[in-house]
């Protein structure tokens, strides 16, 4: 039986890498005394699978993993038992048995973000113009990547191929930018790249934080 679980990764846990999260959650399952399925073999491991890795430094209230269980546990019980043994920065929000046979990654089509940006001397109209350009005409940016032969190459990307929604507003003196990115397997455009594009366009950013709000399916609905 496969259970889909939605969880948070906030506060200092934004500095914890994907692999470490994976191990941490498996241990939490053990602490909670939940009877999970293990692979066969000499070195058995817990049967879990995770969504696309979240970049280091980004908080999230919409992370997912899938776990195979031996016991027929009510999703709500799973949530409660897990939360007792999880830190407040990583809490289970929801769980449900899945009917979809596709993997979590295959189901992830979009990622929704909130950027909290502290600008110095912001001209809000100019920001709005930039936002329009990013989604309508698109801005070409380049990134260095390793190719298959491990050589470093420079590749060019266009923002409009990766961002489908972008909107900025001001809230209690701070600037909030909402964004929906298209999820790609290669992760060609990261949330951080948007910040870089904005600051490269002449905006002075003093400080920012990024929150991943959710992973959305092909119908732009939350996975859970």
């Amino acid at each position: 039986m496969s259970l889909i679980v939605k969880y948070t990764k906030t506060g200092n846990l934004k500095y914890i890498s994907h692999l470490d999260v994976l191990r941490f959650i498996q241990r939490a399952v053990k602490r909670a005394g939940i009877d999970a399925k293990y692979s066969e073999g000499f070195n058995p491991h817990m049967k879990t699978s995770f969504g696309f890795p979240l970049s280091l430094g980004i908080e999230s209230i919409g992370e997912y993993f899938e776990i195979e269980l031996n016991e027929d546990i009510k999703p709500d019980d799973f949530v409660n038992r897990m939360n007792v043994v999880m830190p407040k920065e990583m809490q289970i929000l929801k769980a449900a048995y899945s009917e979809d046979s596709r993997s979590l990654m295959a189901r992830s089509s979009y990622t929704e973000y909130l950027f909290n940006v502290e600008f110095v001397n912001l001209d809000f109209n100019k920001l709005n113009e930039l936002i329009k350009e990013i989604i309508e005409t698109g801005i070409v940016f380049s990134k260095q990547k390793k190719n298959k032969k491990n050589k470093i190459i420079t590749k060019e990307y266009n923002t409009k191929d990766f961002i489908t929604y972008l909107n900025a507003f001001e809230k209690t003196g701070k600037t909030v930018i909402e964004a929906i990115f298209i999820t790609t397997e290669t992760g060609s455009m990261k949330a951080d790249d948007l910040i870089k594009i904005i600051s490269d366009s002449g905006f002075n950013i003093d400080y920012y934080t990024i929150l991943k709000v959710d992973t959305l399916d092909e119908n732009r609905k939350s996975l859970l």
């Binding site: 200092n12 500095y15 914890i16 890498s17």
Partner: peptide
């Protein structure tokens, strides 16, 4: 992660 604490 060495520098932030917050462990269980």
């Amino acid at each position: 992660a060495r520098y932030v604490g917050s462990e269980l």
